[in-house]
Nucleic acid binder design. Sequence first.
RNA 1: GGCGCGGUAGCCAAGUGGUAAGGCCGAGGUCUGCAAAACCUCUAUGCGUCGGUUCGAUUCCGACCCGCGCCUCCA
Length: 459
Amino acid sequence: MALKLFDSLTRQTRELAPAAPDGVFRFYNCGPTVYAPAHIGNFRTFIVNDVLRRLLDLEFPGKVKHVRNLTDVDDRTIGQARAERRPLAEITRHWTALFHADCAALNLLVPHVEPTATGHIPEQVEMIDVLLQKGNAYRSADGSVYFKITSFPQYGALSRIRERELKVTNTAFDADHKDDVGDFALWKAYKPEEDGDVRWPGPGGAFEGRPGWHIECSAMIRRHLGETIDLHTGGVDLLFPHHENEIAQSECCTGTTFARHWYHSEHLLVDGTTMSKSKGNYYTLGDLVAKGYSPTAVRYALLSGHPRKQLNFTLDSLHAAESALKALRRFAQGLGPAGSAEPSALFDPVIRALEDDLNTPAALGALFSAVNAHAPGNAAADRAALDRALGVLGLDLTPPASGAPSAPAEVEDLARRRWEAKKARDFAAADHIRAEIAAAGWSMLDSKDGYRLEPAKKA
RNA sequence: GGCGCGGUAGCCAAGUGGUAAGGCCGAGGUCUGCAAAACCUCUAUGCGUCGGUUCGAUUCCGACCCGCGCCUCCA
């Protein structure tokens, strides 16, 4: 089985394989900026990358090194700290913790390394020093350092920026400091009124300030994965300028290929448009859980579209996901435990769909096709196969732990009375009480020898 | 203006030069005192529009219409 993935640089679907002699597959996924709760659009990318990670684990067992960073110093994190008048580290620590909790709820595997920008300042400064020495970077009047894109002839290969006609605006061109609009900051000189106590010694041991955004990834990759990595991923929005700039600074610094394969997942839209707080279509995982949806359903819904296609997220898609998951749970229960059985081939098409450029919607389709095609016989082996397929998708069928809130005492009391009435075959009374229970916002679900109460479904 | 992506049933969504996976919803049925659940069955002569290539196109080519994203720090 070969794992194929679209490569944003060559615009072709290519096979993934480690290049280094040690056989380790080096995988870097651009992580979040920790200044606010991550929204489900962010999580679409992280979930897609999580499925990728699981596929890689299947393909290269024990030989995958997965790194995902945390951006904990940049304009936005600093801005948030200023707005709240709290130390930067306190802000980023808080949002990192929430991010990790959301990741756990969404069943995301923990990367092998999760480096932070602030934890790698010397590494970043070192790279900037090299770029200055090699003439790929220059220092501006205020002590900032910019990368000179004309010094790197291949600049623009990834984003095809040369074919674009840049809409140049005054705000985009910081004429005071940059030589060229396209140049980007490697190091930003310290500005007391903006940066507060956020500052480090800069290139050459002088020029206090902080790193630009792009250099952190280059430095952390170099430190944790080496000069050449096998796969670099992120959302499409990072393609330009972030990844373009990473390539430039890394390759100029090391003189060798930075990433052998690039992959970008598309944006999540909500209600047909981009998410924004002002439109009221901005969702975090917490928002959706508060509405009663399970994180597993969120994960399922986010996998229901092709990762390289924009996905329009709606609450309806969450309903569909909950229903589909419910059917899968029933099916799994019907099969019983896998025990020590070897997986059957029943769900192989699911894995194959994923190996074919991470086609998650096809994989989900194949999952149900297999369920529908299932014939009784080797339940344990089929269950083992189901578990493996669901494992790669990262779908955990365990029902939500907490769940059912208990009904108020008066509703419990009504239920008890209705049950007695029913047993006495006084159906008129039983139906009357059912209506009362419904009026109180609860549903009474009878079974053969008992009943349970659930909150009535909201419209 | 430039770069890119997409338009497949009520909704979501795969896919292929040879005649449309799958999920949700809905409908009918079985079962159940009722309700719910579960199970069974059904649901696109059609894949934005118009041309072209072809024995044959939803799938290739062209034009057009519509939607969306990006164009300097947003996954």
